[in-house]
Design a binder for these strands. Structure first.
Lengths: 243, 243
DNA sequence: TGCAACAACTTATTATAATAAGTTTCGGAT
DNA sequence: ATCCGAAACTTATTATAATAAGTTGTTGCA
């Protein structure tokens, strides 16, 4: 019996709530989350609902569950998302926070047709409406690591080109401003040789191997998906994910 | 009230059952799976149990669910697993079956210490027990695509070195012979330049970009994880996954 | 002191039920 | 013939309940 709009499911609300508490540091790495029974009492929800939210946290790598023991908070990787960066060598000393990562917008969001070399094909409706296109360069400790091209369909996004994206997760913006939650998607991974432009952006020599990760990201709105093409320099930082 | 051992959960049994029917072709791409209500009656299970099994099928990319419509069977990618190969260009005409893919064992399973250049670190217990180590080369249409190194802890695997792995999924062997189900894991992805040995195995020139995917695969037995290091030539086939 | 059994916790699995919401179909009114 | 709307389907979400099984800590006995 909350006065929140009933449109967002309880388990998503709980997921976000716990997720924020982990990110803010209320729960630190190694902590035990409140038991499912405690969460039931605290949020007035039942066990399956609690479990669905905790299942999402497991899937995204925030916690790890152990039968008879509890839900253990995992260390936060640098950069939060489906795949994130992690230091290549030392698996230890990973307590570093996301503050070391900075984002630079190379091209402000502008309307554009769908890029030709993407590995996914958008729907006809999206193609007709056109896309917001932007390029971002992400760096860890001033060293460029990611070069990303993003295409978002020109629908449901009023005033998007006026949004500031510096040092802010695109996911968070879509969630907080437009109520769009990424619920899944499809990805294709390959290794390519850096061409001149890419080599300059990432600061590598031409022809050196670069990771390319293309994604289609599906949201809670069935007819809204957007696309990302990511180029990663993986000599010091590599892509990391759970499944 | 089945006479099956109650140790494997109903939702896993149902998942496997439906999965096999999809792989065998009983359900083809584009088909609608029986409705949740039909499955309830057929398997004498309740909706949440059905939904849990269908959720796994969605996660693994076998089906796609649409509210008010049903569960639609997706085209089978070549190679089944957490990440699979898919043709690089044509998204169409993907009705090809797994028969085009062949597997060659380069080194038979033998006991070995844990490889040094792996990106994961095994537990102390596993290190002491030693590992089965094997190398596989996977090809599509006679063209080598994957070169994979696998390390399995020398525990719970009696007679493993006598098993035949040609043209058979390692996952299937572990599941059917040893009751081990892969339930999740962790992966690290990077792009590397092919050295002499790798270039020869995959048939590429030295220094050309190759995808490297290291995985730790966790099973239903909490103390049993194994490790895979995969090198992929991604000029014609690329790695594909859902999330 | 050391250990085994037990109690009290935890998560895991499954069942049953009710309501909400999206999709398709079909019939009637225009 | 076309359009609109209700009915009949579908999946989505949440609630409640019971039992199983793993973990931890404690208690009491040897």
């Amino acid at each position: 019996m909350n006065d929140r709009p009933t449109r967002i499911p309880q388990y998503q609300y709980l997921y976000e709530s716990l997720r924020q508490q982990i990110i803010r540091g209320d729960f630190k790495s190694g902590d035990l989350l409140p038991s499912e029974k405690d969460l039931q009492n605290q949020f007035r929800l039942t066990q399956p609902t609690i479990r669905q939210a905790l299942g999402l946290l497991v899937q995204d790598g925030y916690i790890r569950k152990h039968q008879g023991k509890g839900s253990i908070v995992q260390p936060l990787p640098i950069g939060l998302g489906v795949m994130s960066i992690v230091g290549r060598l030392a698996n230890t000393a990973n307590t570093s926070r996301a503050e070391r990562m900075s984002t630079t917008i190379l091209t402000k969001p502008r309307l554009h047709s769908f890029p030709e070399d993407f590995l996914f094909t958008p729907t006809e409706e999206d193609t007709k409406a056109g896309f917001y296109y932007l390029e971002r360069l992400r760096a860890v400790d001033e060293e460029p690591v990611f070069f990303e091209k993003v295409s978002l369909p020109n629908r449901y996004l009023p005033g998007f080109s006026r949004q500031r994206l510096e040092n802010r997760s695109l996911f968070d913006l879509l969630r907080t401003k437009y109520g769009l939650l990424v619920k899944g998607g499809e990805q294709k991974v390959l290794a390519v040789a850096a061409d001149g432009d890419l080599a300059r952006q990432l600061g590598v020599t031409m022809g050196s191997p670069v990771l390319r990760l293309d994604k289609r990201l599906d949201t809670n709105r069935p007819d809204f998906s957007f696309y990302s093409s990511l180029y990663a320099k993986t000599d010091r930082y590599i892509l990391h994910g759970r499944f």
